[in-house]
Design a protein around this nucleic acid. Structure first.
Lengths: 344, 344
DNA sequence: TGCATGTGTGTAAGCGCTTACAGTCCAAAG
DNA sequence: CTTTGGACTGTAAGCGCTTACACACATGCA
């Protein structure tokens, strides 16, 4: 990337303004002139410098995304949906992981200087900085965050589906429940799930802290819980990874799932389907979240829309075997119609 | 991001050159002057425009990455390692997925205009364009590709570990094998694995085309294979996702793994550990690949090194239960010492 | 006192584009 | 034969920085 518009102009025997117009199709250019320009462009293999274009246009044609960590399928899926749509809209995607980073503020500010708008997960960016970004006019879309003024928010529904899940488990006849997944920040996804199950199960469920949403933490929390007295009959986990940890803990302790214990997850990641027993879980439309975020951002950036919007996407209860036997569809509730692959 | 260096200069009562010097620490600035500048910067909340800086400096402080798809854990893990190190080195990461994209060339060229160097997976970028990028002086690092001049390459070892895996299976006494994972481009990872197992098993193994490296394709290929006559005793899969598909197919057909059939994967993704039976596989250091790519790129960009380098990282055979019983460590070979989590 | 060194600062020339504005030219209308 | 309005094209002013170069002013030392 070395040859500039000047060399093209010189070779074609025209001014740089004409080259620019010929290439972008803004303003009239005689057919013969255009040809000369295109020929020169071809011969020199010219590609306009992105920096020059951006500086002159005053836009980056790029979107940012800030996530805590890409470990685990959730963020990856959202990212995929995001990148795909952003690319369709002619925008590059610049990523930033905050996991284990000091100086998050600086990193986010740097990112802000490279993009026209950004997608931010939950509370990965400190509140004062968010306020500042909003004030500076940066276009923002949040996923899994309570609505705020000056930015879009997007999430998938939690409370009602959590209630539905809880009711399903209650229908199995379980009476002592545990919820694995604290700590929960107010208004965060997991907190909403907790509120949802609690509304249905009331005092029959207790919350257990897992510190992080990982297999390891799920394993440890579940092991301690299951070793103690008053072992629950069903463990509702904040997400699939914690649930996978719980399955491992049960296996370790010689407990049969779902015989001695029911376990459920949330998200419907790939491993949920492959675990044995396969995980009953709540599928949320991860890619769709990313895709919508990209579109929302585009609307805000192009000013096709000015008022922020707050969307909530529906989820789907996916019943598999980890929550108990389902005579009507046994032995593999996720295998109906002979197709082991549920629609995505 | 609105206030420019001019406003800062004016407010501090100095020239923009002084502001720049004060901020970057290049060139002498009197202590009192520096204070005035910093105060003005503070008050105006000034952040230098990335575009201005990049244009003047002639560099982007950003790295690109081109991958086919982020679905599945492999690319994600590499990306994570890459982003982490790139960020440490002060570089942003711009991503580009080629999955399902027409006009890959344009997208890659656009990317090239935004970054100082890029990491490219395998053969996601057409050869002529690669040559052109090299010619233009773009710094490139490839993962899983045969060495070429003018760029670094990086891969993890395949052939020897494939041989080790095959030998292990032969040790179980199996005699009829299948390899699930074609089509294989010459010199690609999967081809090397095939060469490796074949060198050990010779005519006892046949290759089966799966079209794609997905659970779905693995399932279909395995089902067809297992339904046919002369069913193999062991299926060596090109990667874990194909292997997970094979496990599902076996379950579908009522075959016990490892009783009736052994199955192995490659990569050691999360689901491999959680599948039942847990997958015997070959772990490759995915994050490390990404991290090294970022470092290699940095060396090339900063010209700390001029000659391309070709690295190969070691892998590790991870024996679990899907390949057969291992009396000495039964029932869960990956659970020794009471710890269900193998070191990563 | 005179001159070589620094030190501190400003001026201005880029970096590679886009685009408002100001021509130039020519065919059609009067 | 003038006007007039398009169609084209060029000039030049940014966009927001960095930095070479020049200059002004103190020092230190002979």
């Amino acid at each position: 990337m070395d040859v500039t518009i000047y060399e093209v102009a010189q070779r074609a025997g025209v001014s740089i303004a004409t080259v620019s117009r010929a290439l972008r199709g803004t303003g009239p250019v005689a057919a013969r002139t255009r040809e000369k320009v295109l020929k020169a462009v071809e011969e020199l293999n010219f590609t306009p410098s992105r920096l020059g274009v951006s500086l002159a246009e005053g836009r980056h044609a790029a979107n940012g995304i800030v996530f805590p960590d890409l470990a685990g399928p959730y963020y990856t899926e959202v990212l995929l949906g995001y990148e795909e749509v952003a690319s369709e809209l002619g925008r590059s995607v610049v990523i930033l992981s905050t996991k284990g980073r000091t100086r998050v503020n600086d990193l986010v500010k740097d990112l802000a200087g490279r993009v026209d708008g950004m997608l931010i997960f939950g509370h990965t960016v400190p509140e004062p900085l968010v306020a500042e970004l909003v004030r500076l006019g940066m276009r923002l879309v949040f996923i899994s965050r309570d609505p705020l003024t000056g930015a879009d928010t997007l999430r998938s529904e939690n409370r009602a589906s959590a209630g539905e899940l809880a009711a399903h488990l209650a229908g199995h006849g379980y009476e002592r429940f545990a919820f694995l997944g604290a700590p929960m920040a107010s208004q965060d996804d997991v907190d909403e799930r907790w509120q949802g199950v609690r509304a249905v199960l009331g005092g029959a469920i207790e919350a257990v802290d897992t510190r992080h949403y990982t297999v390891e933490c799920g394993f440890e929390a579940a092991r301690d819980l299951l070793k103690g007295r008053g072992r629950p009959e069903a463990i509702i986990c904040s997400d699939d990874e914690v649930a996978l940890g719980a399955l491992l803990a049960a296996e370790e302790l010689g407990l049969s799932v779902p015989g001695d214990l029911a376990v459920t997850g949330w998200d419907d990641i790939m491993a949920a389907r492959h675990a044995r027993p396969a995980l009953t879980t709540v599928r949320q439309p991860m890619r769709e979240l990313g895709a919508r975020a990209a579109r929302a951002l585009d609307e805000l950036i192009t000013r096709a829309r000015d008022l922020p919007r707050h969307q909530s996407l529906p989820t789907e209860l996916v019943v598999r075997s980890s929550c108990g036997d389902h005579p009507e569809t046994s032995p593999s509730p996720d295998r109906r119609a002979g197709d082991p692959f549920r629609p995505r």
